[in-house]
């Protein structure tokens, strides 16, 4: 990787899925660099490759060809357990369906990653409590996911994603299951985290409100980057 502030770099990435006997070209040659502090969105119609690209960056999937570097390390040929460690250390995920662990409370969900990382109990407890407070979830720490509203659940998911201080957070359609008010609040929150804490975000979305708040918009069509534009802050 050339520039020191590049956290993710993709070169000549293709991804072909086989569905029955038909080959589906999800990505057809992607070159992309994500810099530290980016607040970028991947936009495009359904099937344009947004989620596939996000999964490749997050080490959830491997490319058919091309190379991906995360924090300067090539991840294309990593084993399952190496990828697992990479996701634990460097990547934060926020999912469209929230996907909190249903049997854990809000606080425990946030603590979960730090626990896997081996953060001492006292420290992870303090950090989780502080994060939940910062995200406006004070008093809801011990509620289980199904006792929280969609917006609250997604904020817990954001807290979980940033708790371990990853180098990049990848929200996949984070507002798709939220009303506009909750969605707007969530985006403001993430933007604030980006500005104040320097957390790097790459979203995939259909939501104009998300696009509106982004500083970089990467447009995908048929598995290619159609446009990559920066917006003034």
């Amino acid at each position: 990787m050339n520039a020191p502030d590049v956290v993710v770099k993709l070169e000549g990435i293709t991804k072909v899925y086989r569905q029955e006997s038909v080959a589906v070209h999800a990505l057809a040659g992607i070159d992309l660099q994500i810099r530290k502090g980016d607040f970028a969105v991947l936009v495009g119609p359904s099937g344009s490759g947004k989620t596939t690209l996000l999964n490749l960056i997050g080490g959830l999937d491997s490319p058919t060809s091309g190379s991906i570097w995360v924090a300067g390390v090539e991840i294309g040929r990593m084993s399952r357990s190496q990828l697992s460690r990479l996701r634990l250390r460097d990547i934060g995920f926020v999912f469209q369906e929230f996907n909190l662990i249903p049997v854990l409370s809000a606080l425990e969900n946030v603590e979960f990653i730090m626990l896997l990382q081996g953060v001492p109990p006292g420290e992870r407890r303090n950090r989780s409590v502080a994060l939940l407070k910062e995200l406006g979830l004070e008093g809801l720490e011990h509620r289980r996911p199904n006792q929280l509203s969609g917006g609250q659940q997604q904020r817990v998911a954001v807290a979980r994603a940033i708790a371990a201080e990853p180098i990049i957070v990848l929200p996949d359609e984070p507002t798709a299951n939220l009303d506009s008010k909750a969605g707007g609040a969530l985006m403001d929150l993430m933007r604030r985290l980006n500005e104040e804490k320097g957390v790097t975000f790459v979203f995939s979305t259909h939501d104009p409100m998300v696009v509106e708040r982004a500083r970089r918009v990467i447009r995908l069509r048929d598995g290619r980057i159609e446009a990559d534009e920066l917006r003034p802050t």
């Binding site: 409370s105 425990e108 626990l115 011990h142 006792q147």
Partner: peptide, 19 residues
């Protein structure tokens, strides 16, 4: 089944045992 109310429990057991 709906989850039980917030009982203020915290992680004391190893997390996977708890889960």
């Amino acid at each position: 089944r709906r989850a039980r109310g917030g009982g203020g429990t915290a992680i004391r057991l190893p997390v996977f045992v708890l889960v």
